[in-house]
């Protein structure tokens, strides 16, 4: 059977040819890329880029950022995947409410997210006495950074994964059950491979968001080199004294997520199976 989904790929809407569509579109692209370009143009002529990158202040921030953002990615995938699957497969009263609640951490000002986390995990927060009794300190620790990042980035992953899971026909899972597959085996052999492009791009988006997290982190985790000072915090601090260091760090924060996002898109596009019926 021909793949009907591709039939329109060469279709170029009539409206799209008009200058009234092309000009605003061009302006939008320029507006979105020019500021990024501006940073590059400012940074590239600097002669001591490599030395700046080797300053302990920079390497420590890099290390902290990598450790925390990867940890929050692990948490996000471990806990977000079952949630996304449940949301994709179950429809009931309250799912719409829950769906909307899930978007809140994304639209909340990060500072508010930070205060909310303080009020939950802080000494005087909801869970404070309980955590205290167990001898667990959260605020000012690397754990706090990971929690702040997970809080703002997990919804991104869950959204994408949910859409991915919705795109997997439940009939495929039913067939797998009748062929002797358990629920878990079906999930890993059928559902995950088919939703993989969405899972991957969701994970990368979430990771990139975690990497760029600033507001909630400064509010909830504070800022200490080697412990809670991530790259965005280091950039902010560096702005107060040394613009070059700040810009070099900023460039890294642009290049690395861009590379990852681009690679994912590229990969996801190559691995789409399309529909066949």
């Amino acid at each position: 059977m021909p793949n009907h989904g591709r039939r329109h790929s060469r279709f170029w809407p009539l409206a799209g040819r008009s200058i009234f569509w092309r000009l605003p579109a061009l302006l939008a692209v320029t507006f979105l890329t020019l500021p990024l370009l501006a940073i590059f143009l400012k940074v590239l002529p600097q002669s001591h880029l490599w030395r700046t990158l080797q300053e302990p202040f920079v390497t420590q921030a890099l290390r902290t950022s990598l450790i925390t953002s990867l940890s929050s990615l692990v948490l996000t995938v471990a806990f977000g995947t079952p949630l996304a699957y449940a949301l994709a497969r179950r429809r009931g009263p309250g799912t719409t409410l829950f769906d909307t609640l899930l978007d809140l951490p994304m639209v909340l000002p990060p500072t508010v997210a930070g205060v909310a986390l303080l009020m939950t995990f802080g000494r005087r927060g909801l869970l404070g006495p309980w955590l205290d009794a167990m001898g667990i300190q959260v605020v000012f620790t690397t754990t706090a950074v990971i929690l702040a990042q997970s809080f703002v980035s997990m919804p991104l992953y869950v959204r994408s994964a949910q859409a991915g899971f919705r795109g997997v026909d439940p009939e495929l899972e039913r067939v797998a059950y009748t062929l002797g597959y358990s629920g878990a085996r079906t999930f890993f052999r059928v559902t995950v491979p088919l939703a993989f492009p969405a899972l991957l791009s969701g994970a990368v988006m979430a990771w990139a968001r975690a990497l760029g997290e600033f507001g909630a982190t400064i509010m909830f985790a504070g800022n200490l080199t080697g412990r809670t000072q991530t790259m965005p915090l280091a950039i902010y601090i560096a702005m107060e004294s040394d613009l070059t260091t700040a810009l070099v760090l900023a460039t890294l924060l642009i290049i690395v997520p861009f590379g990852c996002l681009f690679a994912t898109r590229f990969f996801a596009r190559r691995r789409s199976y399309g529909t066949y019926a």
């Binding site: 009939e171 067939v175 059928v190 399309g274």
Partner: peptide, 16 residues
């Protein structure tokens, strides 16, 4: 998975 019942759904649901 233990019923020994085969299933052919409406659009066949082949694993793409």
């Amino acid at each position: 998975q233990k019923r020994r019942v085969g299933y052919v759904p409406q659009h066949y649901a082949l694993f793409p």
